[in-house]
C-alpha cells in the first residue's frame, strides 16, 4: 500500500511539535526531555473544553497540528485514532469509584471513558461529519492503526487523519501496564504520491527499528513506536522501518522523499 504524507504532528517530552522537533528527530540536536504542556483545545466550546482530559488534549494537539500542516480542511478528513490505553486516567477513576460502597460513578466520566472519546471531541472541534474509527492494539497500536489508516486511503481514495496517542495509567493499574510519559503523533495521509511517499506492507518478520537516543521514550509509550518513522521523515532520506508485532508478523514501512 502506498500513500502520501501531507502533514505531521508530534508531542512528547522534549518534542514540542513537528517543526520544533525536526532537528532533534533528525539527530542534529540533543534530545532534552522535559514536562509536556497540554493546552485545552481552543476549537472546542467552553463546556466541552472543560471536560477534556489530558489524553484527549494530547490527541487533539497533534491532530490539529497535522491537519493545519496539510492545508486540508479539518472537517474534510476521515479519522483513525489508535491508542493502547485510551483515557486511562478516566478509567482508573471509574474503577476507584466502583470500589466504593454503592459504586456510583460520574456520568461525564462515563461518557469520557469510551475509547473513541478523543475522536468524538475531535469531531466536535472540527465540526466534522466524516467517518471515524478508534482502535486499540496494546504495543501494536501505532503499527496496526497506521495499517488501517492507509488501507482506508488506498481503498476509498480519501484523505485520512491518523492519530496515535498514549498517556500513563493511574495507580495501581500503572504497575501492570507501564507507560512512562505522554506521547502522540498524527499524520495526514492522502491518496497521491505528492509530498513524502509512505509505503506500508505486512511481513512475516522484520528487524525492529531503533529510535537511537530516543529509545527510552519509544520503550515507555506504545504510541512512541512511531519514533523511527518520524526520525526518517525528519531526516528527509529514504528509509525502511520495521515494526514487529506482539504475536508474530510485522509491519514494514518505507519512506521515499520526493
Amino acid at each position: 500500500m502506498r500513500c502520501g504524507i501531507a502533514g505531521v504532528g508530534v508531542l512528547g517530552p522534549g518534542l514540542p511539535g513537528w517543526e520544533a522537533s525536526r532537528a532533534v528527530l533528525a539527530g542534529e540536536a540533543p534530545w532534552e526531555p522535559g514536562p509536556v504542556v497540554l493546552p485545552p483545545p481552543a476549537a472546542l466550546p467552553a463546556t466541552e473544553r472543560r471536560r477534556t482530559s489530558a489524553a484527549v488534549r494530547l490527541a487533539l494537539v497533534v491532530a490539529a497540528e497535522a491537519a493545519a500542516a496539510s492545508g486540508l480542511a479539518p472537517d474534510a478528513l476521515e479519522t483513525v485514532f489508535a491508542s493502547s490505553n485510551g483515557d486511562g486516567a478516566v478509567i482508573g477513576s471509574i474503577l476507584e469509584a466502583l470500589s466504593t460502597p454503592g459504586g456510583a460513578i460520574s456520568p461525564t466520566q462515563f461518557h469520557n471513558s469510551v475509547h473513541n472519546a478523543a475522536a468524538g471531541y475531535w469531531g466536535i472541534a472540527a465540526g466534522s461529519h466524516c467517518a471515524s474509527v478508534s482502535l486499540g492494539g496494546h504495543d501494536d497500536s501505532f503499527a496496526i492503526g497506521l495499517v488501517q489508516a492507509v488501507a482506508a486511503v488506498v481503498s476509498r481514495r480519501v484523505p485520512v487523519l491518523f492519530c496515535a496517542y498514549d498517556a500513563p495509567l493511574t495507580p495501581p493499574l500503572d504497575a501492570r501496564r507501564l507507560t512512562d510519559a505522554v506521547f502522540a503523533t498524527a499524520l495526514v495521509l492522502v491518496p497521491s504520491d505528492a509530498g513524502v511517499v509512505l509505503s506500508v506492507e505486512m511481513a512475516e518478520r522484520a528487524e525492529a527499528s531503533s529510535a537511537g537516543d530516543l529509545a527510552p521514550l519509544m520503550a515507555g509509550n506504545p504510541a512512541a513506536r512511531a519514533l523511527p518513522l518520524l526520525q526518517a521523515l525528519a531526516a528527509g532520506a529514504a528509509a525502511q522501518v520495521g515494526l514487529p508485532l506482539v504475536d508474530g508478523g510485522a509491519v514494514v514501512l518505507g519512506v521515499e522523499p520526493c
Binding site: H115, S134, L135, G137, H138, I144, V147, G249
Partner: peptide
Amino acid sequence: LYALPRYVRARLGLRGPAVAIST
C-alpha cells in the same frame, strides 16, 4: 482491548492482522 482479537486469532490458528475496534 487487543486481547479480544488476539484470543480469537490464536484460537482459530490465524496469522493475518488483528484489529480491535472500539467506537
